[in-house]
Simulated assay, not measured.
Amino acid sequence: MLGPALTGFLTGFSLILAIGAQNAFVLRQGLLRTHVFELCLLCALSDALLITAGVAGFGAITAALPMLPTIMTLGGAAFLLVYGALRLKAAWDGDYHMTLTGGSAPLAATLATGAAFTWLNPHVYLDTLGLVGAVSTQYEALGPKTAFGIGAVTASFVFFFSLGYGARLLAPVMTSARAWRWLDIGIGIVMWALAAKLLLS
């Protein structure tokens, strides 16, 4: 079972490794050191649910609902554009007093934003229901298929908690409003670039 589990882990890890909208948000929250555990758990559990559905063979949902990818693309792009604009506005305003003193949005708002980054991202369905599900089809027996799924789910937990808690290693650099301004500019640009990629693909 070790082989399928390792394949699942590497497959899952490689798909979420690239810095995307969700990862950028987790990184920023990790730098703030607030609601990190809850956010990482939300992201990992969401991935686990989607990966389980993909391995179980529910990737056919997108085939049964041909309009779903378009709806998710438009919704995801709109959310990314708005959040990117908010980060760029924050950089323009330059008021980082609350940020520098460890302030953050309330837990409910943080989790709602994290959920939006996860569930409004059409690529997450392609990665989990589509790609992970497709790779899992090489295992026909229940045991190896389950091991593959567990490996992929484990990769999500390892990645998100490493990103969230590893972000504090950058804390010594993020001690000035200028550093946070550049971070927000970078995140805003990433969000808009991802939105453009969604709309143009």
Rank of each mutant, 00 (worst) to 15 (best):
L74V: 08
V135G: 02
T154G: 15
G3E: 15
A112E: 05
T73D: 02
G164T: 02
G114P: 03
V190F: 05
E140A: 15
L17V: 11
T99L: 09
G143N: 05
A177P: 04
T146W: 08
Q22F: 06
L194K: 00
G84L: 14
G102I: 10
G130Q: 06
S162F: 06
V36P: 08
A179Y: 08
T73W: 01
W119L: 12
E38S: 15
G94A: 13
L41D: 00
D184S: 13
W119G: 12
G30S: 02
G20C: 01
A195N: 10
L126K: 02
L41F: 09
V132E: 01
L88H: 01
V55P: 00
I150R: 07
T52W: 14
P69Q: 08
T118K: 01
W180N: 02
A78S: 14
V82W: 14
L198F: 12
T128A: 10
L68I: 02
T128Q: 08
K145G: 04
V153A: 05
L45P: 05
Y139C: 04
L170G: 05
A109Y: 07
E38N: 14
A116V: 03
I51K: 04
P66C: 08
P4H: 08
G8I: 05
A167Y: 08
L49Y: 00
T154L: 12
L126C: 00
T11I: 05
T11R: 01
A53K: 12
N121K: 13
S201R: 11
K197V: 11
G151Q: 04
D93I: 13
T146G: 08
V36M: 07
P144F: 10
G57H: 09
T7G: 13
F9Y: 13
V158I: 14
L6W: 01
L6Q: 00
T70G: 15
Y139I: 07
D184T: 11
T52G: 15
F58A: 10
Y165D: 01
G102R: 03
C40R: 09
A56S: 14
A105R: 14
A90Q: 09
G54K: 04
C43K: 04
S201F: 14
F159P: 06
V153Y: 00
L68E: 05
G3R: 11
G76M: 11
P106R: 03
Q29W: 09
L183Q: 08
M67Q: 10
A108L: 14
M174S: 03
I187D: 03
F25R: 01
L200A: 06
I189C: 02
V36K: 07
R28M: 11
Y83R: 06
P122V: 02
Y139R: 00
F79Y: 06
H97V: 15
E38Q: 15
G133H: 06
A48H: 06
S162Q: 03
D95E: 12
A147K: 03
T62C: 12
G30Q: 08
M174P: 07
G164S: 07
A48M: 09
I19E: 00
M98C: 14
G188L: 04
L200S: 09
V26Q: 09
C40N: 14
G143I: 13
S14V: 06
G166F: 10
T11G: 12
V55Y: 02
